[in-house]
Design a protein around this nucleic acid. Sequence first.
DNA 1: TCGGTGAGCTGACAACTGTGCACTGACTGG
DNA 2: CCAGTCAGTGCACAGTTGTCAGCTCACCGA
Lengths: 213, 213
Amino acid sequence: MSHTTGSAAVTGVRQARKRRTRQSLLDAALALLEEQSLSGLGLREVTRAAGIAPTAFYRHFRDMADLGVALVEESLGSLHATVRANLAATVDSERRIAGTVELVARLVREHPAHVRFLARERHGGVRPVREAIGGELDRFAVEVAAELARLPEASDWRREDLLMLARLYVDLMVTTASALLAAGPDAAAGERVEEEARRRLRLVALGSRHWPG
Amino acid sequence: MSHTTGSAAVTGVRQARKRRTRQSLLDAALALLEEQSLSGLGLREVTRAAGIAPTAFYRHFRDMADLGVALVEESLGSLHATVRANLAATVDSERRIAGTVELVARLVREHPAHVRFLARERHGGVRPVREAIGGELDRFAVEVAAELARLPEASDWRREDLLMLARLYVDLMVTTASALLAAGPDAAAGERVEEEARRRLRLVALGSRHWPG
DNA sequence: TCGGTGAGCTGACAACTGTGCACTGACTGG
DNA sequence: CCAGTCAGTGCACAGTTGTCAGCTCACCGA
């Protein structure tokens, strides 16, 4: 037990340095993954790009799969709060739709490599990474369902229908993100994708307003 | 006796043999791709599994990317007619929905490796393969839109809304296919996925019946 | 029947891979 | 202050990779 002086600086120069090279490994891997997939990425390739010796890799990750899981956490971990805030913010349907699409668009604009990684490895060749992404997306769906349940017009929905709708929304946003990636840097093409995404959401919202038929 | 001059055999023993080993290359690659992705698959690995010498690979494909494109064609090429027939068959909405989901389910059941390959390489690390899959899916969307246009209730739809709806349907079926793969061989889990897919389609059909709001 | 074609083979090459081992030296807690 | 920890290094190893050149020999058309 630490009955030490109680200083605030717990970091330690050593651990900080370690975290820095760990981060440079993650960055290097992410950059290399823009043009190939994780199962084709070599350990030496990554360490070379990160500027360290190959064997130093093992100080941070057991595997490339291990590194991949860390990348998933980095890509998706901080997003839950954002999504939750966005959903809770507005009640008006049209505003909610516009805000959600804008959120996805900004995510793709600001972190294209992360999004590309997720799209690629969601069904990729490395099981632990696949499962990490899938689990994270499931968590998103549950959170979205919880927010949907707070809307008055969903008060009489069955729980499973609510989850179905939430998962549908999540899937729509994921495919929107990949479509935005595929559209590339062309602003006009990106705007077309966003507009189509909004229309899709409008259609689904319209359907759910008349549910269950 | 054996060498009848006017035989109908247009194939030729030689070309037939070549096609057979080409096919065994495709089969071997597909089998190996169940547990990794194309950009991590080695030429030697494939030829070893196919039972031929490494250099013989070049007699059939220039690249692994080339082989991948051939796999896309094999996986998706024959599907257009099936989809078209399925859509044209029934007019009743509920029957159409059930039939479509059943078609996807059967596809996954009968050709799981092909479907897995498509899901994996749709956003995978090999550009030509990505583009081949994307182009094929676009063609599907156009075909679906053409079939939708024949329905009386869609007579007053704008062309772009029709395409939006068609693309939505295609994306829904693609995500349904991956979900079925993820569900694995468990029949109960598969049935749950199918039921949710039907509900999704019902919701979308409901929304489109009230379009544009 | 005979020369040409071409699918598939063998052997070899340099380049690259993941990982084990022993080492250094800056940091650390007591 | 000093002994211990541990991130990072260098070297070595056995395998594997893609590809080249040249060979065989079953098939082909004429």
